[in-house]
């Protein structure tokens, strides 16, 4: 009696077909989940651009870029983005003056100097520091740092870009230091050993061998820090006041692009009004700013990439 050909029995074929169908369906579902991220990007761009286009029917691009007042909710409405941009630039600058040097020094210490035990404790600690909600940092800026600064600088108002920027800087330190450290640690050990072998100290090795070798990663860390500072909202909204001022002095209160969006959202603006569209125009400006930094970071990474 010949053995039945189980492999090609109709039952088995049907089973195989069902199995194939199931596999393809699952793959399609997974693909759809992955493509969602592309859809999100398009949705963001579509929404910001379409609402901004309506906005620019009322306000010329020239006025938007050159007017020095931003008073969209007043009767005498001006739509100049400059005051918001200056507030964003000043607060970010203060933050970066703190975050970049401190972040870099901590990274150098953890990567080149610190004993194993210190690093094992410090890294998770910094990570925890980076996980504290921004609204809490805002509280800290308004009710701890501002009064403290006022004892040193008596003329400092209750809301200022300075204290907001300082706290924002402290908040960004963990991001900068952990990314910089990761970049420095990825430099292979034999480069360091070569440097030590010709008599260099740890500091010389860090500055002249490890940092140049990890320049692309460090640049990426800095860019991430900048783009976080530019997009940060709650600290500035709480500690810097929310009046749009064209100022270049960090000791003044001012609004940033992000705090303007918060301020408008706290009120009750009807959907479709010009005030509603201004926050999308402000959002588009913010997105373009961060996009510029992201592209810059990408180019820097490509330009200085070292391959081992």
């Amino acid at each position: 009696m010949p053995t039945p050909d189980t492999h090609h029995s109709p039952k088995n074929l049907r089973h195989n077909y069902k199995r194939y169908l199931k596999e393809r369906t699952i793959e399609l579902l997974l693909f759809l989940a992955a493509s969602l991220s592309v859809f999100i990007t398009f949705a963001i761009i579509y929404l910001l651009v379409s609402e901004s286009l309506v906005f620019f029917e009322h306000v010329s691009l020239w006025d938007f870029l050159t007017d020095t007042q931003w008073t969209p909710l007043f009767d005498d409405a001006h739509y100049g983005i400059l005051p918001l941009v200056s507030g964003t630039a000043i607060s970010s600058l203060v933050a970066l003056v703190i975050a970049l040097p401190f972040g870099t020094i901590i990274a150098i210490y953890l990567s080149e100097f610190a004993p194993f035990a210190v690093r094992e404790i410090a890294k998770p600690f910094l990570e925890l520091l980076g996980g504290i909600p921004t609204v809490v940092y805002g509280y800290f800026a308004l009710l701890f740092v501002t009064p403290l600064l006022q004892t040193i600088l008596p003329g400092l108002p209750g809301f200022s870009l300075l204290s907001a920027g300082l706290v924002m800087g402290i908040m960004i330190i963990p991001y900068v230091s952990s990314m910089t450290e990761d970049a420095m640690r990825s430099v292979p050990m034999h480069l360091r050993e070569g440097s030590y072998a010709i008599g260099a100290t740890r500091f010389q090795t860090a500055i002249k061998v490890v940092m140049p070798a990890s320049l692309s990663g460090i640049a990426a860390a800095y860019i991430l820090g900048i783009s976080r500072a530019v997009g940060e909202t709650m600290v500035v909204a709480i500690a810097a006041g929310m009046q749009p001022n064209l100022v270049w002095n960090p000791m003044e209160p001012a609004a940033t692009i992000t705090t303007y969006i918060v301020q408008v959202s706290l009120g009750d603006l009807p959907h479709g009004s010009i005030g509603y569209q201004t926050i999308f125009a402000a959002g588009l400006t913010l997105l373009l700013l961060t996009l510029v930094f992201n592209i810059l970071g990408h180019l820097l990474r490509k330009r200085y990439r070292e391959v081992y």
Binding site: I105, A122, F125, L126, I132, T201, R202, F203
Partner: peptide, 30 residues
């Protein structure tokens, strides 16, 4: 060079301490 090395070490520890102090101030204040 050894002096600079030591300075860098101290700077690193101070920077880390500032981060720790900030955390203590933030938490303690709250």
């Amino acid at each position: 060079h050894k002096r600079w090395d030591l300075l860098a070490l101290i700077a690193g520890i101070i920077a880390l301490m500032i981060a720790v102090l900030t955390f203590i101030a933030l938490f303690g204040n709250m």
